[in-house]
Design a protein around this nucleic acid. Structure first.
Length: 499
RNA sequence: CGCGGGGUGGAGCAGCCCGGUAGCUCGCCAGGCUCAUAACCUGGAGGUCAUAGGUUCAAAUCCUGUCCCCGCAACCA
């Protein structure tokens, strides 16, 4: 049953270089996208950059660059990181692109014409660092520097108008905000009366933005500027057919810090634009950098991204997907990375490949043996492998990525166990046909595992499939052709030796 | 009453929404195997699921109270 899957990440703010947070969300999106692709869905995976605003302007000034030059300098840094992490996005939006700007203006005009935008004058304490007005209590807390009293005219979006409608929507669409506790958090937030949203900045103060179509002295502020990317890219206002095909998005993946902007600001904007809401807004947790003492023998490993150089992108992607339960925070420590790498990838998965390929090379002429007639033991393995595919599909559509990875790895353990109990190295001497059957079964199981893990580890699994001489990527049992010649190989995941 | 997260065998974590014999990985102990990356497999020890009440035939799981721990500088997923 194939359908469409439109997944987004936030567009990242370019006032600094990319870090683990950006990388995690993007890898997660990539993994989901790849799972849906192998399930036969048509996928659209969108990510990009948020390039306007005060802080970008300031960062540019600090470097003696124009804002655009600053953005043009940072964009490749994101792009090259995505390349390094094997992110296969379908489009990469930069909010300074013309295709985006004109749609933002179109959206603003539409909301304005509808009467959902009004002018008001506001006076209050303004924090330059925060790029926003702060409340009196915030001001008296003394926590904000660079504060000054400011009075100015601005445009406001009538967010409050849609409050009740949003509450009703959230309550009647249980998977709209996930996980559950985030939904409750938002409903709690919505118990207070919602204010309206300031959506403009006078150019006199901040001109690095998209001009408001109905007032040339103003640019629009972050909300309309950035959030609209989710519809401008799939074709809102420019390509009706395409837009109809992709919108609404299946999921906006976000970090928990920007839940309010997505589940309240963005959704009320969509109400005003009379567009359907995304099916799901999923807020994942944060990676906490464990306070484990840095070990010298490991080098100065502090950041999972550094591990890519040493251990490869697949191992890092695996770790990130395996360790974090979506929605909760997780701890990163070099130690836990090494443990999971050694036990799951080196000892279980990589070693299984060596066992199988080694025996086939030694006793079976290096060719995939003929399975012959399966016994109940093999039938059991086969049905578990086939069941796995459905189970993983189901878990992925429920955003239980960790569970999905764990259940795939369970098959690896089952296969290791199977090897142990069947002992094809013994069978080769007493019952050659049985040995053939066992090794075919183990190899085929390994093939299924590799296909199922390919969204998480695209490179290593491709290597395994290549070694096995697997043609195609069908996760249905029986894909391996007997007599296919195996390729020789090095250990897939060399153990990390720790002193 | 600032906000949020959490307290489950030695460590790290699932499970909690949709109550029904407490699960996974690591570590430890003993054994097996010897094809393999000193890897793999089997068995075992170890938990009154923070705590006090409540609801229920039944609670880690639902409700209420209490205690404790963590994050909230910047940036930000």
């Amino acid at each position: 049953m194939s359908s469409k899957f439109f997944v987004t990440t936030p567009i990242y703010y370019v006032n600094d270089a990319p870090h683990i947070g950006h990388a995690y969300t993007t890898i997660l999106a990539d993994v989901l996208a790849r799972f849906h692709r192998i399930a036969g869905d048509e996928v659209f995976f969108l990510t990009g950059l948020d390039e306007h605003g005060q802080k970008v302007k300031q960062a540019a000034e600090k470097r003696n660059l124009t804002p655009q030059a600053h953005c043009d300098d940072l964009a490749p840094r994101f792009l090259s990181l995505w390349q390094k992490l094997d992110i296969r996005f379908d489009d990469f939006i930069r909010t300074t692109q013309e295709r985006h700007k004109k749609i933002v203006q179109l959206a603003l005009q539409k909301v304005y014409d509808k009467g959902d935008i009004y002018v008001d004058e506001y006076e209050g304490w303004y924090s330059i660092a925060e790029e926003r007005f702060i409340t009196d209590t915030e001001h008296s807390s003394g926590q904000f520097r660079d504060v000054k009293k400011l009075k100015e005219k601005n445009y406001f979006f009538k967010m409050s108008k849609y409050q009740q409608r949003l509450i009703d929507y959230i309550e009647s669409n249980p998977v709209f905000i996930r996980p559950e506790h985030r939904k409750n958090e938002m409903l709690g937030f919505l118990r207070q009366p919602l204010g309206d949203l300031c959506i403009s900045r006078p150019k006199a103060r901040m001109d690095w933005g998209i001009e408001i179509p109905f007032d040339k002295d103003y640019v629009t502020y972050v909300w309309f500027d950035a959030l609209v990317n989710y519809i401008s890219v799939p074709g809102y206002g420019s390509d009706g057919v395409r837009f109809k095909k992709w919108w609404p998005a299946n999921v906006h993946l976000i970090g928990k810090d920007i839940l309010t902007t997505h589940s309240i600001y963005w959704t009320t904007m969509l109400f005003s634009l009379e567009l359907p809401l995304p099916k799901t807004i999923f807020a994942h947790g944060w990676w906490l950098m464990g306070q484990t003492k840095m070990s010298k023998s490991l080098g100065n490993v502090v950041n999972p991204l550094d591990l890519v150089e040493q251990y490869g992108v697949d191992a890092v992607r695996y770790y990130l997907m395996r360790e974090m339960v979506l929605g909760l925070d997780a701890n990163f420590t070099p130690d836990s990375f090494i443990k999971s790498y050694n036990s799951d990838l080196a000892n279980d998965f990589g070693n299984l490949l060596n066992r199988v390929s080694g025996l086939i090379a030694k006793n079976h002429g290096g060719k995939i043996p003929d399975p012959g007639v399966l016994t109940t033991v093999e039938e059991e393995i086969k049905s578990q492998a086939n069941a796995l595919v459905g189970k993983v599909t189901q878990l992925i559509s429920a955003y239980q990525v960790q569970e999905a990875v764990v259940s795939i790895m369970e098959l690896v353990r089952i296969l290791n166990k199977y090897m142990e109990t069947q002992a094809p190295w013994k069978l080769a001497k007493i019952d050659f046909k049985a040995a053939e059957r066992v090794l075919y079964t183990a190899a085929e199981g390994l093939r299924i595992v590799s296909i199922m893990l390919s969204p998480v580890m695209p490179n290593k699994t491709a290597a395994v499939l290549d070694i096995l001489g697997s043609v195609g990527r069908s996760p249905v049992w029986g894909g391996l052709k007997p007599a296919t010649v195996l390729k020789t190989h090095e250990p897939l995941f060399p153990r990390i030796e720790v002193k």
